[in-house]
């Protein structure tokens, strides 16, 4: 059987809100390492990878590796019934066809059980090699969200260019064009407010803003976001989940035909 107890239950609620519009059904893989998921969107342009390490849970028991197929919209409906301060416990039996979500209020005066049916999902898993990226930009997550939202009111695609001058986000549409440049800025009070550019080589890639905007639904998970780019690889947009792991989005670039 498996049983995970997550004191900061709101983390799981935030993860679901970040991915449920991108991916409909997914297999959650449970092992001694942690609770993970890898799933592509229906058009195979974007991929979500989640890892919540076992050490981040107050209690983590996983007797054998288990794959739980869930409809993310239904899971989100269940998790929305948990309070933001609730402790969430996930339970399932080996070979069973249900998962139980238990929500405990912080004062322990309200305890709820929700059972959800599991699904058989045949999903394609991609092998993602560890890569050295030509450029990695780390910036405040709220700033990145604002840029993607602003640019999508003007165009459908964004060109992200990293040079030693900074990172430039550009778009063009019927009404005109826009360029937003963020320079490296490490002289801030808090590290999460910094913009840090690690550039081995300049890189310039084009992406669909629709997907970028979808990724920024993960903004409540982390103060900062990192964008890893190479000219021959998908973009990686990573939100670290404090003390537990990460939520990563991979996005295939657009190219000149």
């Amino acid at each position: 059987m498996l049983e995970f107890r997550l004191v900061q239950g709101s983390l799981l609620k935030k993860v679901m809100e970040a991915i449920k519009d991108l991916v409909t059904d997914a297999n959650f893989e449970c092992s001694s390492t942690g609770f993970s998921l890898q799933a592509m969107d229906s058009s195979h342009v974007a991929l979500v990878a989640l890892l919540l390490r076992s050490e981040g849970f107050e209690h983590y028991r996983c007797d054998r590796n288990l794959s739980m197929g869930m409809n993310l919209n239904n899971m989100s409906k269940m998790l929305k019934c948990a309070g933001n301060d609730d402790i969430i416990t996930i339970k399932a039996d080996d070979g069973g066809d249900i998962v139980t979500f238990m929500f405990e209020s912080p004062s322990q005066d309200k305890i709820s059980d929700f059972e959800m049916k599991l699904m058989d999902i045949s999903s394609e898993q991609l092998g993602i090699p560890e890569s050295e990226y030509q450029s990695i930009v780390r910036m405040p997550a709220a700033e990145f969200q604002r840029i993607c939202k602003d640019l999508s009111s003007i165009g459908d695609t964004v060109i992200i260019s990293v040079t030693k001058e900074g990172v430039k986000f550009s778009t063009r549409g019927d009404i005109g064009s826009a360029n937003i440049v963020c320079r490296q800025n490490t002289s801030v009070d808090k590290p999460e407010e910094a913009t840090v550019i690690e550039m081995k080589e300049p890189v310039s890639l084009t992406f669909a803003l629709r997907y970028m905007n979808s990724f920024t639904k993960a903004t409540p998970l982390s103060n900062s976001v990192s964008l890893s780019m190479s000219s021959d690889l998908p973009l990686v947009v990573e939100y670290k989940i404090a003390d537990m792991g990460y939520l990563r989005f991979y996005l295939a670039p657009k190219i000149e035909d």
């Binding site: 342009v45 991609l126 092998g127 993602i128 021959d232 295939a252 190219i255 000149e256 035909d257």
Partner: peptide
């Protein structure tokens, strides 16, 4: 013309 690539163009299936 700008063409949208897919992830399979970069990553292999396991």
């Amino acid at each position: 013309e700008i063409f949208q690539t897919s992830l399979e163009d970069f990553f292999t299936n396991k």
